[in-house]
Design a protein around this nucleic acid. Sequence first.
RNA 1: UCCCCGAUAGCUCAAUGGUAGAGCGAGCGGCUGUUAACCGCUAGGUUCUAGGUUCGAGUCCUAGUCGGGGAGCCA
Length: 463
Amino acid sequence: MEKLTVAQARQVESVGKQVQLRGWVRTRRDSKGGFSFLELNDGSSFGNIQVIAEAVLPNYESEIKHLTAGCSISVTGEVRQSPAKGQATELQAKEIAVIGRADAETYPLQKKQHSFEFLRTIAHLRPRTNTFGAVTRVRNSVSRSIHDFFQEQGFLYINTPIITSSDCEGAGQMFRVTTLDPANPPRKEGAVDYEQDFFAKPTYLTVSGQLEGEVFASALGKIYTFGPTFRAENSNTTRHLAEFWMVEPEMAFFDLNDNMDLAEAFLKRIFTDVLSRCPEDMQFFKERIDATVIETLENIIKSQFVRLPYTEAVDILQKSGQKFEFPVAWGNDLQAEHERYLAEQKFKCPVILHDYPATLKPFYMRLNDDGKTVRAMDVLVPRVGEIIGGSQREERLDILEQRMRLQKLEPASYWWYLDLRRYGTVPHAGFGLGLERTVQFITGMTNIRDVIAFPRTPGSAEF
RNA sequence: UCCCCGAUAGCUCAAUGGUAGAGCGAGCGGCUGUUAACCGCUAGGUUCUAGGUUCGAGUCCUAGUCGGGGAGCCA
């Protein structure tokens, strides 16, 4: 007996095959003719397969008539062309074995739409919903494209440490990692004595693999990391997580323009792949979540991203005639409302803002000849905002040290990072792409907590 | 962290300070291949928690908890 996935059984090529399918019942419809339709899903595709269960099956009255959403079953039978509209094929059951029941009185998922807020409270069951199944397949497609894209271009996939001792990577609050007893830590002159901690120094969860990525780019040329990242910021928004996944390519001998070219090609590849690999899922997002998602991706793939120096952006915003809550002035960070105006109203496509004032950006970004701006870039997309942040890195030792002191950082504690500039320094660049924000943008899902399996946010780490 | 909003049946919501309801879901029954199936009946409530005002509180007040949206931080 050939075991097929639901996705395979839904293909017309499977008609005539005797097969076994295993999965979870989505719904049961009893027909007037004294038999039942079961909608079976196993996650292999968005759509279910319709199983025809005739009353002659020995367990029809005892078991099949009591199947409800959530029950797991194994069905053997013949794949047939469906006589009715709605599906190409269906499975004529010869035998249905109930593997696991799901008491309809207590099973939280019903044959109806649930709010995303409610589904978050049952994160262990929400992968069984249409939406979360579709999100999961899209997320997988994105991850696969990330590897495919970089591998095909000769990048090496490297794994940078999750636990770090750099206490100031520059990207905000960090989670401390310790084995000390919080109720009674060892002390030395009043302060906690971290020399007695596991690593004999304070350690944290990484906020970025960039600095380590630069180490490998400075030896192997083109590399990328792809892993979890942690920020202990008390951020309560639809775009922030305390634990999220980030892709960080780093390339030797790349300047900012090369970096922008790469980021643009990278995003276009991800979008192209998802449209071709997940058409059914994307159609669902279009119909139920955001009518514009497919069109938006198609337009982006065709068009060129707008590349706009910060200084020009300020000019455009000041002359826009728009009323902004926060005033626009050179040297100020652009607010969400400004970025949104540029991406959603002015250009209606991804915008790469670059060459920001040095005072707004971290020490490692390369200083321009004007002495006022750095070779930074942010890729902004409509609705989600910043999806990529990156820069050309400062490869000149003296300027890098100057910039560190200016930002009150101690060069000595970055001795290994500075060694890259002392020995065989080269111009290089890189960026970070937020995986969840990318999935958000593709799917139209409004809350980032609904595009990751088990979201970690302030006050919430259930499951 | 700041601002705003909310919490009532399993879910989504309604209820002028005066007997807590509907739709969906579930159970049972009906129905010539259904597909958000349809029709009928039934069951289902500590109105988030603790105080307070009132003859009387789901409704008003105070505090708290949790959730949502926006802002900041950023991916």
